[in-house]
Computed example of a mutant assay.
Amino acid sequence: MSDSTLFYVHDPMCSWCWGHRPQWEHLQAALPESVAVKNVVGGLAPDSDKAMPLDQQQAIGGYWKKIEGMLGTQFNHDFWQQNTPRRSTYPACRSVIAARWQNAEDKMIAAIQEAYYLKAKNPSDTETHLLLATELGLDAEKFSADFSSEKLAKVFKQELQFARTLPINGFPSMVLQHQGQVHVIPLDYKDYRGAIKVITEIIS
Rank of each mutant, 00 (worst) to 15 (best):
T84Q: 11
P22W: 07
P172R: 05
D188T: 02
N39C: 07
P186E: 09
G62E: 12
P53Q: 00
F162S: 00
Q28E: 11
W64N: 05
D55L: 10
I199N: 01
V155K: 11
A45S: 14
R164A: 12
D3W: 12
I97M: 03
Y189Q: 10
V155P: 03
K107R: 15
T73D: 02
K157M: 08
S95C: 02
Y117S: 06
Y116G: 05
I196Q: 13
E114L: 03
A98T: 11
E150D: 14
E114F: 06
N169P: 01
G42C: 03
N103G: 05
R94T: 03
Y63N: 12
C14S: 09
L138R: 05
L27A: 02
F143G: 04
V198F: 10
Q181L: 11
A36Q: 14
S144Y: 03
R86G: 01
D146G: 00
S34M: 09
K142W: 01
D78L: 05
A140K: 10
K121F: 01
Q74H: 14
D3R: 09
P91V: 01
I199V: 13
N103Q: 13
R193Q: 12
T200H: 07
S34Y: 00
A133E: 02
N83Y: 09
V35I: 11
T5V: 12
E141T: 14
M70N: 13
D47F: 14
F156E: 10
N169Q: 15
T165E: 15
A115P: 03
I196V: 15
Q57V: 11
V41H: 01
G62W: 07
T128E: 01
P46E: 05
G137T: 07
N169C: 02
M70H: 11
D146H: 05
L44C: 07
E141I: 04
H178K: 01
L6M: 06
S95K: 03
Y116K: 04
K121G: 00
A59Y: 15
T128S: 09
L54G: 00
P186F: 00
L160S: 04
K157E: 15
E127G: 01
G72L: 05
A110H: 15
A99Y: 09
L131D: 12
E68S: 14
R164N: 13
F143S: 03
I203E: 06
I112K: 03
P91K: 00
Q23E: 15
A120T: 06
R21I: 02
M1E: 11
P167A: 05
G62H: 12
K197M: 03
K65L: 10
A51V: 08
Q102G: 05
A45D: 07
L176H: 12
Y63Q: 10
K119E: 12
F75R: 03
P53V: 06
D78H: 11
A92D: 10
D146E: 12
E141S: 14
Q161H: 12
Q58W: 07
F171S: 00
W80V: 13
N76Q: 08
P91Q: 08
L131A: 13
H26N: 15
E159Q: 14
L131H: 12
F79L: 07
R87P: 02
I199S: 01
L176N: 00
G61V: 04
